[in-house]
Design a protein around this nucleic acid. Structure first.
Lengths: 216, 216
DNA sequence: TAGATTGTTAATCGATTAACAATC
DNA sequence: TAGATTGTTAATCGATTAACAATC
């Protein structure tokens, strides 16, 4: 069977989407109804062909020569693509300072993520509640994920524990893992790991700074 | 003048470094003194040539044919490259739930980042302390950064305020900005913005999940 | 009509991967 | 020596950018 309408969207393009979306919402609030790719490109400091291709990748609706694209249509198609419209349930493992923070963070809901439970190894934390989410013992991960039909796991444990926790999540049927531990996780090929690499980001900043300071 | 020994390291390579470093530290703890690129590649699920090139980019010391690379040397050279050895001071702007979290997060220090002060617009927060860091009014950003010689700013404000805060940081002499607001920031060309894109990461997870569930 | 903008094909660029001689 | 591994040059791959005809 030949799949005709399967849109190919690169991961790089996906990462540009939130910035398009933010700008489009801003334009909408200013009452702008139609916008051209070159104008968006200039505002976001991108190449105009890239913007046109990105827009083509999200939306079936076409732009109008001389005018541009419908702001409202782009917004709703991007929200759909980014999954902001439908909410996914997730669990979080590791209630250290970063995990604690994420439990309290309101922003994830806006992006369509709902943390329904948290786990930790430390018996001191177990049974406590953070932002209305109860903390359960880590040895219940697989069972709970399976029972609640959870398919997203967030890992905020120290590096030594990350792989073990990951295995438990996978055993519980989790298919997508958001990993904040600076460790490579081994998973079966149908499971996706999205690594969040705060150390590397900081290294980028620190390197830039070092070079700038050298020139002063 | 001709610069011979200026190492070129791509941003992609830099992002792989924390994973090398973690694995190398693990090997060190197991008493391993020398490791080959193909073995590391296998452990981290990377291409072996890529590993060799990455190692060559960080270290002047060469690997030994048939043996491999010195684990200890690689560790210290990577720590140096990633800036884990020297600490940079930074300020944080926006003490909402994410900003609050970061102030409490212990992990940044390990990566060589020290948050020395926080700012917020909300008068309710001002003067309060979080993890020993005092919260100052946002209109003092430029002055304080300048006076304290701060060159790194972390932005955790809502999107509407991000550009303004960014301008204040730049006015105060900040040269590197870690931006958690899903907004494109306009800065002078000598200033670096490193965008942290939680919404995009979540979209990657959510998209993967949707495709997997479709096939069940 | 003239001109801005679109969509698409071709060229460029940069990173990854393959191939292979040199080395211990 | 034989063979694993290195460092490097060449080929491949994929994303970005340039060029340009089609359109309103």
């Amino acid at each position: 069977m030949f799949v005709e309408n399967e849109k190919h969207i690169t991961i790089q393009a996906l990462h540009r989407m939130p910035y398009y979306l933010q700008k489009l919402r801003e334009l909408k609030n200013e009452g702008v109804e139609v916008i051209s790719a070159p104008k968006i490109a200039q505002m976001l400091n991108l190449n105009e062909v890239q913007v046109r291709k990105d827009f083509a990748a999200v939306s079936d609706s076409k732009g109008k020569p001389k005018a541009g694209f419908s702001v409202l249509e782009l917004i709703s198609q991007m929200e759909e693509l980014l999954g902001f419209n439908n909410t996914d349930d997730a669990v979080l493992v590791g209630v250290g300072s970063l995990g604690h923070a994420f439990l309290a963070y309101k922003g994830f809901e806006e992006y369509g993520l709902n943390i329904v439970a948290a786990f930790d190894l430390n018996p001191e934390f177990i049974g406590r509640e953070i932002s209305g989410k109860i903390i359960l013992p880590a040895d219940k991960i697989s069972e709970m994920c399976f029972r609640m039909g959870i398919h997203i796991g967030i890992i905020t444990v120290p590096e030594e524990q990350a792989q073990k926790v990951c295995d438990q999540l996978v055993a519980g049927g989790v298919l997508a893992i958001w990993n904040f531990a600076p460790v490579h996780l081994s998973v079966p090929e149908n499971v996706l790991v999205k690594n969040e690499n705060l150390a590397a980001s900081l290294a980028v900043l620190s390197k830039h700074l070092k070079e700038k300071m050298k020139n002063l």
